[in-house]
């Protein structure tokens, strides 16, 4: 199924919002964020939103269960999960990232039910990229500006308007819902629209690829570049929190009187207390070990467990790191020393 919405995605978004909880890139106080849709057109020229859409499936913090009583007469109630959502205007890198997280949290042994239910009930409508941003490098890590991985519907921008293609059955259902807002795609060629997106220029990805530096992880681990990179690290959580594939979380209790909540919320391996144990032992005590952990996880450990990079090249960490600790810079320096 392929249809063109005449030049604007607004009617489609309006139609979608009628019977769905619609989330999309919105402008808030000058920032482009992924949030609940408020009726506006998509922001002009946005590349990626400040926050990644991962928070729809893995909220920054969420309550897992409530309990009454502490040591006595304990009563536990699992927290219900909110209803289905449509995530609109997701970028291909971010949609693929949802799939990467699902590799871990959806794995057979202990599937994370809350993540899984949200993943199943979220329809991802992806807008392919017709231009790469300053920090984009998806192609260097196996992605593509036209990739439909993790998406239910693909939207390809063309000179005439937008071409839509349902990728999954769920996508097809949603498209059928809002047929009135769409036009027949007469003469539209989805393949060539996708190919145009596929071929956009992406300067960063042309020059550098992690493929060469991932062979011998022992040497990478021992490299002196970690200490150099980490020297300027602020031990803040920006890189992990804006990252669409970082999924690490912590569990914590909040008790008021006799009732409490067990939360889970994002955590970052860059924080000093991430691995700090009772008795003050810390296996990764300085910025050097922590910075190395972040890159090693994306470039080696994730590959070793799941067969692909744990990075989709969205460039957020590069953009947002206040001191320019850049994924590709690390790879480039590793190329020189490994």
């Amino acid at each position: 199924m392929k249809m063109a919405a005449a030049g604007s995605l607004l009617p489609l978004m309006e139609a979608l919002s009628e019977s769905n909880d619609l989330w999309a890139p919105i402008v808030e106080d000058g920032q482009v964020v992924f949030g609940r849709w408020k009726g506006e057109s998509l922001p002009d020229n946005y590349r990626v939103t400040d926050n990644s859409p991962k928070e729809l499936l893995l909220p920054q913090t969420e309550s897992l269960m409530r309990f009454e009583g502490v040591y006595d007469q304990l009563d536990i109630k699992e927290e219900p999960i909110e209803g289905p959502k449509v995530a609109f205007g997701v970028r291909p890198c971010d949609a693929a990232a949802l799939d990467l997280i699902a590799e871990v949290l959806g794995s057979d042994d202990y599937p994370d039910e809350r993540f899984g239910q949200r993943k199943d009930s979220t329809t991802v409508v992806t807008l392919a990229c017709d231009e790469a941003g300053e920090h984009c490098f998806c192609r260097a890590v196996g992605g593509s500006p036209a990739s439909d991985r993790g998406s239910d519907i693909m939207i390809y921008p063309t000179d005439e308007g937008y071409l839509l293609r349902a990728v999954t059955g769920a996508g097809q259902d949603i498209l059928r819902q809002c047929e009135s807002a769409l036009d027949p795609a007469e003469g539209g060629d989805v393949e060539s629209a996708a190919a145009d997106c596929e071929d956009i220029e992406m300067p960063l990805a042309e020059e550098i690829s992690p493929d060469g530096v991932t062979e011998d992880w022992h040497r990478v681990f021992e490299s002196p570049i970690w200490e150099q990179l980490a020297g300027r690290c602020r031990s803040c959580g920006i890189c992990g929190y804006v990252c669409p594939t970082c999924y690490c979380f912590a569990l914590f209790d909040d008790l008021r009187g006799n009732s409490g909540v067990r939360f889970r919320g994002w955590d970052s391996c860059q924080f000093e207390d991430y691995l700090l144990m009772a008795g003050d032992h810390n296996p990764r005590p300085t910025e050097t070990e922590r910075t190395r952990q972040r890159f090693m996880h994306k470039l080696h450990y994730f590959v070793s467990r799941w067969g692909e990079y744990g990075c989709v090249g969205c460039g957020r960490c590069a953009d947002k790191c206040p001191v320019g600790i850049h994924m590709l810079a690390a790879i480039k320096e590793l190329e020189e020393v490994v």
Binding site: V33, N51, Q60, S235, C236, G237, I238, Y241, S268
Partner: peptide, 16 residues
Amino acid sequence: VRQFDRCLRCFACRNV
């Protein structure tokens, strides 16, 4: 409320 709701609690503000 709107400003703080965007906050990611990355603690970068404190750390610098």
